[in-house]
Every structure is written in structure tokens, then in C-alpha cells.
Simulated scan of single mutants.
Amino acid sequence: MDCAHLVKANSIQGCKMNNINVVYMPWSNLKKTADVYVGQRVFHRQKDVKIVTMENKVNEILNRLEKSKVEQFPDLAAEKERRDCEERNEKEAQIQEMKKRKRKNEEERNG
């Protein structure tokens, strides 16, 4: 219900109206083709669609959510670079471990 209140409050048309339907579904259920108009929804499976009817806004819920709001402005490029670096280091460590095992096996065979 909290999410439905946020959707209604942040909608340009929905915040002015009463008795609106808020549609929920997994993003994978959304079917987007070239002939679909802006704002129109087409689904793969109707069974996965949930509809919640919002009668009017409840200010107590919106105020509570607004107080707990935390805005973050992450440096996505730096985070991606750090993650890529960690993945490269892990791969290198795995390769080094495989080389050590290979050398050890060869030494056992020869020695």
C-alpha cells in the first residue's frame, strides 16, 4: 500500500483524481513492441498482473515515507570500475591457483 500511495502521489494525473488503479507486475511481464503507444501497457501473462485501487491519498503515509526518504548520488562509473577490478583480481587468483596445482602435480609425477 505504501508503494501504491507513492505512485499515486508522484503521478501527474493520478494525484488529482480519486479512485485510480495502480498496476503492479514483474518487469519481465511487460511486453514492449513498436506499435505500443506511450503509456499503454501490454502484458505477456495477465495472471502476473496485480491491480490495487487507490481511493484517495493518505497524508500520514506519505509524510512517514517522505521522512524516511534517503537520496543517494553514487558514482556509478567508479563503482563499476571497482567491481571490474575485483573480478579481474579473482580471475587472476584462480589462474595462479590452477598453475600452482598443475606444477605440483607435475613435480609429483616427475619426482
Rank of each mutant, 00 (worst) to 15 (best):
H44S: 08
K16N: 09
H5T: 07
I20C: 01
P26I: 04
C15D: 08
R101Y: 03
A9F: 13
L76K: 04
S11V: 02
Q72T: 15
K67Y: 05
R83Q: 13
E60V: 08
D48T: 04
N29Y: 06
P26L: 00
R101C: 06
N63I: 11
P74L: 00
Y24V: 01
V22I: 07
K80G: 03
M54I: 15
Q94T: 00
T33Y: 00
N18D: 09
M17E: 13
A93G: 02
V22K: 02
C85F: 14
N59V: 09
E66Y: 09
D35G: 01
V42W: 10
D35L: 05
R101I: 10
A77G: 04
V36L: 15
Q94M: 10
L6K: 05
T33K: 07
N89M: 15
I20T: 02
D35Y: 02
Y24T: 01
R83L: 13
K8M: 05
N89H: 08
T33I: 08
E97V: 02
E108P: 00
E106K: 12
V7N: 00
R82M: 06
T53L: 02
R101E: 11
R101F: 08
K102W: 08
S28Q: 05
R101K: 13
Q96R: 11
R64A: 14
D84N: 14
M98S: 06
N21R: 09
N29S: 05
P26D: 04
Q96T: 13
E108R: 14
K57F: 03
M98R: 12
L65H: 03
H44W: 12
V70S: 05
K16V: 05
L30V: 10
R88N: 11
N10W: 06
V23K: 06
T33C: 08
N59F: 02
M54F: 02
N19W: 06
V38L: 12
D2Q: 09
A34W: 12
N29G: 13
E87N: 07
T33V: 10
E81A: 15
Q46N: 04
K91D: 04
E90N: 07
L30E: 01
N10G: 11
K104V: 07
N19I: 01
M1D: 15
K32T: 10
R83E: 12
I95C: 06
E86R: 11
T33P: 00
D84F: 07
Q46W: 02
I61E: 04
N63M: 13
R103Q: 07
G39Q: 04
Q72E: 14
E71Q: 11
V49D: 03
R82C: 03
K8A: 09
R82Q: 05
M1W: 05
K57C: 08
S28A: 13
Y24I: 04
N105D: 08
K80M: 06
V52C: 03
H44E: 13
P74F: 01
E86G: 00
E108W: 09
V70F: 03
